[in-house]
Design a binder for these strands. Sequence first.
DNA 1: AACGATACGGACGAGGTGTCCGTTTCTCGG
DNA 2: CCGAGAAACGGACACCTCGTCCGTATCGTT
Lengths: 186, 186
Amino acid sequence: MNSATAGRARRADARRNYEALLTAGKSVFAESGTEAPLEEVARRAGVGQGTLYRQFPTREHLFAAIMSETIDLLDRTARDLLAAPDPWDALVRWLRLYDESAACYQGMTRRVAEGVADDASPVAAACAPMRASFGQLFDRARAAGLVRPDLTALQLFTMISALPKDPTSGTTIPPYLDVVLKGIRP
Amino acid sequence: MNSATAGRARRADARRNYEALLTAGKSVFAESGTEAPLEEVARRAGVGQGTLYRQFPTREHLFAAIMSETIDLLDRTARDLLAAPDPWDALVRWLRLYDESAACYQGMTRRVAEGVADDASPVAAACAPMRASFGQLFDRARAAGLVRPDLTALQLFTMISALPKDPTSGTTIPPYLDVVLKGIRP
DNA sequence: AACGATACGGACGAGGTGTCCGTTTCTCGG
DNA sequence: CCGAGAAACGGACACCTCGTCCGTATCGTT
């Protein structure tokens, strides 16, 4: 809803380069983490630096674009889980899925947590739907008295995002997640 | 136990500059966080870049030196608390003290957690005594059946270190700490 | 075909890290 | 006190990465 909103359609080469950069960004971020030099992204996409920065003014923009598919899946899953019978189980399932989704890009959850906390970040915009549906999932569990009442959805999300990851698997080390899940009960 | 181990005593100006850099480092890190440009540390200490990097080859070395007083205090406190009657209460007290100790340098706990995880880091060496005494404090509580048995002292330490901080106070947002403390019970 | 708009790409400036080496300063024996 | 020689200084420098700028090339349309 952003690229095509104003003006005409973009030129064909621009669209092609956008896709190439997205693909290159995914492979670079997957290999070297989300802090990898952006120059390598441009190189691998076969375009110049200028083109990279025109399509994605900052690293955050590129990151948000790369994550958008994952975010969409998490959003849809959260909405599906709202229909699940057990609110607690649904919440836990979603959190585990979120954790696993982050495995392929080292540093992803930290970046998501920071992005979500800053309204001006493109990541915050990309995450808005997911944040809303996770909020519902969380509120349902809390309203059922399954989660301590002084905790907010955003706080839980931030906390889970900040948990240290196992460098080999990319996911959170099991006891960490268990500790938080036990700790948020009232 | 390192500087004076081999060779003669260091020259007077070198010792003076070491102290000046330490003081400057504290003020810079306190003002601008532990990611602040090191050039500013040298400038504020009134020495050249070369001198800074000779005394502290990397940012980690400077950071470890700056933290050493705090680490010592935490180490001593942990050993004192071993004498406290309630193992759980002693553990909680120490963790809260650790959290508060980190308030003055933004980004400190994260850096400590990363340093402790890497044996080659000077931070790991600086933290070794504290880590050992905290380990005893933790093990005492766990042996008393007050902490889940599948958790290690290092894991808890890492987890607490990773919790997001309130930007204004510098300490962990209360519910986060409470969640973890509740979550680590068996 | 040709023109205007759009997009390209790489040179460039800024800001930071860490190194290198000619010069200065300290220390100590005479 | 003085004068070697070791120790330390400091800032220029090489390198990296980000993000910008602008002359040039390409696209799409008439």
